[in-house]
Simulated scan of single mutants.
Amino acid sequence: MAGKAEKKSNTRSRIISYVMNNENTSKVEISKNLNISMPTVLSNVNELMESGVLVETGEYASTGGRKAKSIGINPSYRYAMGIVITANHVGMTLVNMRSEIEKTDRVRMKFSPETSYCGELSILVKKFLEDMEEPEKLLGIGISIPGIISQEQHLVVKSHALKIENYSLSFLEQSFSCPVYFENDANAAMMAEDIHQYRNAIYLSLNNTLGGAFCIDGKLFSGQNQKAGEFGHMILVPGGRKCYCGKKGCADAYCAASALTDGKYESLELFMEALSEGNTKAQKKWADYLDNLAILISNLRMAYDMDIILGGEVGGYLADHMLALGEKVMEYNGFDRDIRYLKNCTYRKEASAVGAAKHFFSEFIKNI
């Protein structure tokens, strides 16, 4: 009996996962694409609709017989929250079952390893969620942190950005009354993407610091010491600019968003405004930035031969500059005839928050 129940649970999980990654589908499509018999699909889909997990979203065009009903995930069935912790800010995002952002806010709050920070963060979260009509629908809170996370030891092994080492996450976890999950910021951003679309991919998180993540066969790859994807600290220019990690010439010093703002602009948005207005200094800096980014991209493509997703704050703007970037990448890579392996990120600003939150949807689906 246990085996039968487990098999049914696995079938349900596969169906829900498929529906979540296909905005509108039908029972016929589910049966065909998941190779599940139609009677099994009908039984499971009907039960999931009765419980409210799935809903009818409309009708397909008639092919002569009765119109097939399109079905989709019920976005309000459950929610999850994502928090992004940086050195000077806290970002909070509420996500529904369709991975749609219901609400988001960003508050200036300097990180501190003291327990008082945990209390302040707890107050911020309570205020953020106070207008949630059904708080029992919150599955948990995913927290994104710029650093190397040890899930087993439950600590931040090292974070240059937050200036902490071997920092226990226990106090932070205990600040909330619901389940909490911690993840590296770049890994979380990768998780925000559709892993069914990107089975094998690299994520470049081009924020104020440069992070990276691997997705291999639909799963995050962390490496032996949870350091896989630390592309920001690959040497790009030997003996070059000093990086915040202490080394010289790191990719972070040339390809992070901070390489563009560089103390002259309060935000990347202001830099991009200057660029669009034709500011010559901004144009020169942008051209140099794209050149350095093209070298990094070419090296990663040569090493891993995967799709490369351009994310983070800069990644959000690159969608309008792909031609210029592509031309530079082609100059450094004579093995690819096009740059279709370069992909734009799905979420321009809240990727890490969404990805950390989506962890709870994955767990929910596994155990349904």
Results as ranks from 00 to 15, higher is better:
123 I>S: 14
264 K>Y: 10
214 F>A: 07
171 F>G: 11
323 L>H: 13
24 N>V: 02
130 E>W: 09
227 K>Q: 12
61 A>F: 12
34 L>D: 07
119 G>R: 13
256 A>I: 03
136 E>M: 04
301 R>H: 11
25 T>E: 04
210 L>S: 10
337 R>D: 06
88 N>F: 08
350 E>W: 11
98 R>L: 10
342 L>T: 05
98 R>V: 01
87 A>W: 12
221 F>T: 00
84 V>P: 00
64 G>Y: 10
351 A>S: 15
115 T>V: 15
294 A>R: 02
335 F>M: 06
357 A>M: 04
185 D>W: 12
107 V>A: 10
14 R>P: 04
239 G>E: 04
332 Y>L: 05
289 Y>S: 09
98 R>E: 09
239 G>Y: 04
319 A>I: 05
180 V>Q: 12
261 T>Q: 04
54 L>C: 13
201 A>N: 06
5 A>H: 15
44 N>H: 15
118 C>V: 13
285 K>W: 06
190 M>Q: 07
327 E>Q: 07
347 Y>E: 02
344 N>E: 00
99 S>K: 12
297 I>Q: 02
251 A>T: 12
176 F>G: 05
129 L>W: 10
247 K>D: 12
188 A>I: 07
24 N>F: 07
315 G>L: 03
93 T>Q: 03
260 L>P: 00
331 E>A: 09
161 A>I: 01
359 H>E: 05
181 Y>P: 02
265 Y>G: 07
